[in-house]
Design a binder for these strands. Structure first.
Lengths: 239, 239
DNA sequence: TTTGCGGCTTGACGGAGGTCAAATATTAGT
DNA sequence: ACTAATATTTGACCTCCGTCAAGCCGCAAA
């Protein structure tokens, strides 16, 4: 593991307050590898041998139904549950609990990934209080991300879920009074999967949102009024 | 807070290894209250003033869309995201991060609940390593519960989600070769909401599962073969 | 420019599941 | 047991969304 990778890794909140000795041991035990798009980090059901830390690029966590890598068969559906990028850690729950992965992970954008041995991580939990605290805070944030998604999935329509996604993107930018422009960072297929709909239905949802002042041109999106979008997400009878 | 309540509370893994002094302080700062069905513990958007620990009974976490307690209007839909029972803690993420609740909580079965002040909990995180560790483990388990639900929600049909629920129930019992009998602990309306479907559709899903050897009589369910149910959940083209 | 390819959109169609209303089963009260 | 109130099921209907099949656009190689 080279200097730059170590520096990036240990600057993360999760590791920031560990003593140097612990960091060195971690760096020795682990390694960093660059993975191309489509590379599979692990499959559902495997045991968690490493904690993966993303230094750059992006990785999707996805669940699948049917055969997957098995009999080479095709009738295999999958759905993206979460997308992780630089600074994110996957998947702490499986590593901490030493349980098999519930989902699989695949690189969606060339990623530089640190592989830290699972038992070393469990040792850190045991020996360093601050690591445990940071892990808890991180897990708490991740729980909220899933909770939010689950809520949307259970009670909002496809266009509403898209609208919610746009709102979170817009919150990242500084509001300019009314209108906001945001840029999508995912291709349609990936976004559709993450939002829990087919790509075709995402297209229709995009068309639908024109009625509430949202216009798409490629990956650029102009939102006439975030407040209007927000109201749209609260509507019960979907038009 | 009486002796029995304290004993039950401090027997939980989360508190088990705390020094007596810390426990006493916690017991002094908090209180226990019994809440009837329908009682609302908190609403989405409120700040987390307490960590709630369920000593008995059950509580649902639900998201809502539309007005809720507002203008007394009716067009208000809600969906249960998680159900907690004795020994569970709600909602650690909001308390630890000191952020507003993402969802609301309502008692679904008369519950005895300990209210522990949020800042006392955050103090424990800071001062007691073991508490932080236990919190992290708990959050990891909770993350997996939501991840599993989200996966099911995104890629399985309503009857398949019901089947998955039955499988988890069946896993709690000792397998008797093939057939297993389980008992539902939720009324249809609540179960339907948790599974992300309408009560009517739950009824139809129940009827549907007769085809794979599952028979319902009131709250009693007989499963001819868990393996058969499992296979049913993997099917892509539903039916 | 042409060809080809992949990503995205559009149209047509069907099915899963939501909604409303009525029927039936359960429970509670008297 | 009888009635009222509530919970669950069933039926009819309709809509959202998934699927399949073209069509379209942009981009890269030739």
């Amino acid at each position: 593991m080279n200097q730059a990778d170590q520096a990036a890794l240990f600057a993360l909140p999760l590791f920031a307050h560990l003593p140097v000795a612990a960091l060195e041991r971690l760096a020795d035990g682990g390694f960093v590898h660059s993975e191309p798009p489509e590379a599979v980090l692990f499959l559902e059901g495997e045991s968690a041998r490493f904690l993966h830390v993303i230094l750059s690029g992006r990785v999707s966590l996805f669940g699948s139904i049917g055969d997957i890598a098995a009999s080479g068969g095709l009738p295999h559906r999958e759905a993206i549950v979460e997308i992780f990028s630089a600074g994110d850690v996957i998947i702490a729950p499986a590593v901490l609990l030493d349980l098999p992965y519930l989902m699989s992970a695949r690189v969606i954008e060339t990623a530089r990934i640190a592989f830290l041995p699972a038992d070393a991580i469990r040792d850190l939990m045991r020996e360093h209080a601050d690591f445990a605290r940071q892990a808890a805070m991180m897990l708490a944030r991740h729980w909220r991300l899933l909770a939010r998604q689950l809520k949307d999935q259970k009670l909002r329509s496809a266009p509403q879920r898209l609208a919610r996604y746009l709102i979170t993107l817009a919150n990242g930018t500084q509001g300019e009074g009314q209108g906001v422009d945001v840029e999508l960072t995912l291709d349609r297929r990936t976004l559709a999967s993450w939002l829990g709909m087919s790509p075709e239905n995402l297209s229709r949802s995009i068309a639908q949102l024109a009625e509430v002042g949202v216009h798409f041109r490629g990956r650029k999106v102009s939102i006439a009024s975030v407040a209007r979008l927000h109201a749209y997400c609260q509507e019960d009878d979907l038009r």
